[in-house]
Design a protein around this nucleic acid. Structure first.
Lengths: 106, 106
DNA sequence: TTGACATATAGACGATCATCTATATAATAC
DNA sequence: GTATTATATAGATGATCGTCTATATGTCAA
């Protein structure tokens, strides 16, 4: 049920913040509770929750609740898909899969 | 003399705008004058110049002047490098090339 | 040299954003 | 039940951003 696509502009906006990229890095490889994340950063708990909600809305983190705690983990597959999508987007002039740019641009 | 690296946060900020991504796409495969770009978008010439200056500062476009005109072209290599860098950044918990995340995160 | 054209810069304005404090919600422990 | 802990939400505030109009700068043609 994790999200598999995201528009390149929305993806860029979602990751265009230092605090969010720090959160993404902290959660890239294991589940982290909100408190764990707060302890690693120099921002308040509501600020962390705010960024997590934003990343969650973009589908960039998965989460699971366990009692009092909520755990978050980066959706690494989506990051990869989006990055590949950006590379592809700027490899052709038009919105198709026609070939372009294979030769030397004049 | 074209730029070859760019911090992931700065890269994301630079491309986190629809107009700029449109400009990037227009210039991805050939040199375009400012006027050509303006004609393709629904924004004024100063707005386009503003975005071009921003992309130029980030090293994301190359440019050459020819008489009255200035031509811009996307630095596609840098886009690729930055995207690869983002994928790599969120594949390890720490700022090293030590292994991590190769198994199933618990 | 004067006028037309191409681009850049300056300054203003409204919108979005990152952060904070205060507080609500919900789960657990005693 | 009451206190404590974990997280989310609400609302405020200052900063950043995207866009516009007006204008400056620089190049070419007549």
């Amino acid at each position: 049920m994790t999200q598999t696509t995201l528009d390149p502009v929305l993806f860029a906006k979602a990751i265009a913040d230092e605090t969010r990229q720090k959160i993404m890095k902290l959660t890239c490889c294991r589940w982290r509770s909100v408190n764990e994340i707060v302890e690693q950063l120099n921002v308040t708990q509501p600020t962390v929750s705010h960024h997590l909600a934003l990343l969650r809305a973009a589908g960039l983190v998965n989460f699971k609740e366990d009692g009092k705690q909520t755990y978050y983990q980066l959706n690494r597959d989506l990051v990869t898909v989006c990055c590949d999508q950006i590379i592809a987007k700027f490899s052709t002039e038009v919105e198709s899969n026609s070939t372009c740019c294979t030769g030397e641009p004049q």
